[in-house]
Design a protein around this nucleic acid. Structure first.
Lengths: 174, 174
DNA sequence: AATATAAAGGTCAAGAAAGGTCAAATTGCC
DNA sequence: GGCAATTTGACCTTTCTTGACCTTTATATT
């Protein structure tokens, strides 16, 4: 169900993602950009950093912060920018092709080892694209954290990868 | 029967769980959070530690104490937090096929490493006792064999244990 | 053509705003 | 009185926000 959110004199129509509260300005900017992406043809938007910063009344560099932390490749986004007069920021949303080999694509992304950050990005992306629900995501993250924290440092990547693949195999089958 | 409880100038409507006396502040906080969970869609609530601590006029770290002692996985809850500006605490109530304590017993049996033979035995018994169906068992075996065969010998026990625990955690959950 | 200026976006570090940890002090219950 | 559970507080880590300063690109001027 969409929410009307009043922020800094603006009225924005933002969807409230399931199980998430938007608590920081960065969260709002993220959600706003995702709204734009959802409406955009081809999942591509172009905008100006300065304009966006003025809109949210924040430092321009905060836009970079949002892009760096929320629109990463692991989460399924490409960001391209250009400086100078007529500069721009372009955000492309990547989507998984579904199909019989979908699971193998995901497994290949995981590989034999995976860092915590990349695992989180992937889970985030799978949730955003509707392959996992909030419960499943939270549960997987918790199990991963709990088990890897007990393992010796140098095994962690491998154990995390194995567990992640095992759980996704169960949840993504058919 | 619901009770009206006046606490620190607040009036909270808390159910008095049968046979339980709410005697400490931690008990009240626990009960309050459970009320919120009962009303929450999806069995998920999000809140801020600072706010909750202010509400009950206690040290913020007391909230951690309540979470650590009352909202454990054994009791069927997941807790996820985020630090920093706009941080939050998210509590998820889980439902299990079997009861959360059963899961911990199984996990303990698995331990940090497990041989292929012991894993087989465990799966066999779980199937026989009706906790897993045939397809689930076959599936788990397949994934275990496939992944462990790629791992170096000396990691295999640990990776097998991690993957097995991960998959059972998912399947024994409703 | 070369140069200067304006108009973008980039970087990085400091400070603010959360939550986490751990141990000492206190309380409550046999 | 002793033990376990609770409460508190000092100090730590992570995430967000801001601002000063830098680099790149387009356009106007000489």
């Amino acid at each position: 169900m969409p929410w009307l959110i009043y922020i800094f004199g603006l009225t924005l129509l933002l969807r409230q993602p399931e199980g998430v509260i938007l608590s920081s300005l960065s969260d709002f900017i993220e959600q706003y950009l995702k709204e734009l992406l959802a409406d955009a043809v081809e999942g591509i938007i172009m905008l100006q950093r300065r304009e966006l910063a003025e809109m949210f009344e924040c430092a321009p560099s905060q836009i970079n912060y949002v892009l760096d932390t929320r629109f990463t490749l692991d989460r399924g986004y490409l960001v391209e920018t250009r400086r100078g007069g007529g500069g721009y920021i372009r955000i492309v949303r990547l989507t998984f092709r579904t199909g019989p080999d979908f699971l193998s694509v995901v497994e290949e992304k995981i590989g034999d080892e995976i860092t915590r950050g990349r695992a989180e990005g992937l889970l985030f992306r799978l949730q955003e694209e509707g392959f996992l629900d909030v419960h499943e995501c939270i549960f997987i993250r918790t199990v991963l954290d709990r088990e890897t924290s007990k393992a010796p440092q140098n095994y962690r990547g491998a154990i995390r990868a194995g567990m992640l693949k095992a759980m996704l195999a169960l949840l993504l089958r058919e």
